[in-house]
Amino acid sequence: MREFMNNEAILEKLSADSGDTETGPAAAEKWTKFLIVEIGKERYGFYADQIKEIVTDEPIYYVPFVPPYIKGFINRHGEPYTAFDLSLLFEKQELDSALFLVSRHGGDQLAFQISDVTEILKVPESELHSLSSVDDGESYFSGVLSREGADIFVLNIDSVVARLERDLGEG
């Protein structure tokens, strides 16, 4: 059956059907799992429960009107996931990789471009040191892990998304 629907009606229907589920951060346990990855030359950490999966060899669909660190979308299970190049965001160095961390955090469909996966760490919460000084508002990082003498910054996805929204809002 075909009826007249304007775009708004369509969008409403799509929203309802998609049934966005909020997957908030898992309850803090005593032991937290972190996914350690390499992005460019740097090592970063992600909360493992924020990462749904790791995918490789994914084509990126370019989208306009977005900041440069948004490469476009990748398609996972028929859904568009916003592709972030954190190396571009933090190091101003574009990343060339087909390896992505796929995240459904906060209802958002996000994919973070990475160079390589290193390991999954299970460490007590206490080992995550918070950042001492915070320059402006929320930092992009939740804290820092110390591993073999090296510092691994743990990403705060919310703040990255907030950054995106800010950049989009100003546009």
Binding site: N7, I10, L11, K13, L14, S15, D17, S18, D20, Y61, V63, F65, V66, I70, F73, G78, E79, P80, Y81, T82, G106, G107, D108, Q109, L110, V161, L164, E165, L168, G169, G171
Partner: peptide, 23 residues
């Protein structure tokens, strides 16, 4: 309808204002 996807919420509304509703 089930084939039509909305964008990630962070991008959804800004793109919508530019005429990109979904994919």
């Amino acid at each position: 309808f089930r084939e039509i996807r909305l964008f990630s919420p962070s991008l959804r509304y800004p793109l919508r204002r530019r005429g990109l509703l979904g994919c």
